[in-house]
Write a protein that binds this DNA or RNA. Structure first.
Lengths: 242, 242
DNA sequence: GGCTGGAAATGAACGCGTTCAAATAATTCT
DNA sequence: AGAATTATTTGAACGCGTTCATTTCCAGCC
């Protein structure tokens, strides 16, 4: 079973040959995606460049989209330690948020163009590649957990209790929006997005601070109401008037 | 050239035969889309059902997506009189907004499912079918003009002058968001969306009314700032700090 | 009538993602 | 060891959207 388990050696590292092949196909594919874009890259091209038959490529990846899913997984794994560092490196909420997002933007930078081909299905929760799909749920939740941690570990921002449980999802959504904007940002060096990141985050922070004002209680409640309604909807039996 | 120009009749209406064929293909296509969905319907199937060859279908419509574009055009033409009626029928802002959106939801109702197949590219402004694309610009602008009119004709809502020029686009965006939500709303009868429409509109209206408070001036300015930054970006040379 | 040029119509062919029955290689069982 | 089972590999084939060289149609002109 282990092709690298030499008969004469005891301590060979058990890496399946198939996993090497799988990794090679993925590497080649991502390289081609980055260089020529998602659409332009064909499965036949990937197979040829990886030195396998077309059928073999499909043996390891059920579809072309699956290659992108594998990229997703790889990305979140690679970003995890950097996100940890970002969280412990900063102390204030705004700074934490900033560095957390910087990790993502830096990591996705080389893949920005082909990431677009992927996120253009983002509005469709039915599509596997959508950030809202069932297939990406584990990635999404793992990601949102970081925002939750970030909120808990920030002592400078106090969130109203009714808003607190929804904040991780909201921040994640905010981040997705920025990434989406970034992908289609045609300004040189995407400085448009950089500006938007800075200004919107500042606004977000002041909004969060404002959200505690007692005067805004009714408005806040209505907003939370709306969030609950919009996000879940698993058969809440909502009364006619709120 | 005019096949329905009978030799013995003078006043025959000059409808090109080709236009009849074109319309027939479109009718058949939309019918199939509605009944079986966009993906499931093939160009070969459309051609067969319309009684033309595959090549002919492509003679009239450059692509499968073009059929959807034609649907768009047809939709906005059909909705125009109803939107006029909606605007003049109501007097208050909230009511106008409500009826205006009701027109859309009613018209799109029978096409809800296949509209999804189309709007799932909505996040990609490069895609022709996206509501943000260059190809749909004329539809979008024509649509936004209705929101502009609605604001002007509503005497019960006064909008801060700095916010006013952006409001049509914002309202249009709000509407697009609701439609998108509606399309993927899996609750029975999409009552989830109905609730969301009601509550979010109420919140929107109170938000608009609040936006005039002098106390909120700095916040408002920052938001407008953000809107300007996000929407255009045609090379604004924005200073470092705002 | 025949001629002509553009509009309309055609079906074969291409490249694509994907599927699949079959062949081959590797591993496990006896 | 050999047999049985499982993992991997293969290329042909399918259905799709799309393209294109070619043919058919038809109104206007001689």
């Amino acid at each position: 079973m282990f092709s690298n388990t030499f008969k004469t050696m005891k301590a060979a590292i058990p890496i399946k040959k198939s996993e090497v092949t799988r990794a090679r196909i993925l590497d080649v594919a991502l390289d081609l995606f980055r260089r020529h874009g998602f659409e332009e890259t064909t499965m036949r091209g990937i197979a040829a460049a990886a030195g396998v038959s077309l059928g073999s490529a499909y043996y390891y990846f059920q579809s072309k989209e699956d290659l992108v899913m594998a990229f997703y997984e790889r990305a979140i794994d690679a970003m995890t330690p950097r996100m940890e560092a970002a969280l412990s490196g900063a102390s204030h909420f705004e700074e934490k948020m900033e560095t957390l997002m910087a990790v993502k933007f830096e990591y996705f930078q080389p893949n920005r163009t082909f990431l677009g081909a992927l996120l253009r299905h983002s509005a469709d929760p039915q599509n596997r590649l959508s950030p809202f799909s069932e297939a990406t749920r584990h990635i999404r939740e793992r990601d949102q957990a970081y925002f939750a941690r970030m909120i808990n570990e920030s002592r400078d921002v106090r969130v109203p209790t009714e808003l607190a449980p929804h904040l991780p999802k909201l921040l994640w959504l905010y981040q997705m929006g920025l990434i989406l904007y970034w992908i289609y940002d045609r300004s040189p060096g995407q400085r448009q997005t950089r500006m938007l990141r800075k200004k919107s985050l500042a606004l977000l922070v002041s909004g969060l601070k404002m959200s505690r004002f007692a005067l805004l209680k009714p408005l806040r409640s209505k907003i939370v109401d709306l969030i609950v309604l919009a996000e879940g909807g698993q058969g809440y039996d909502t009364p006619n008037e709120a």
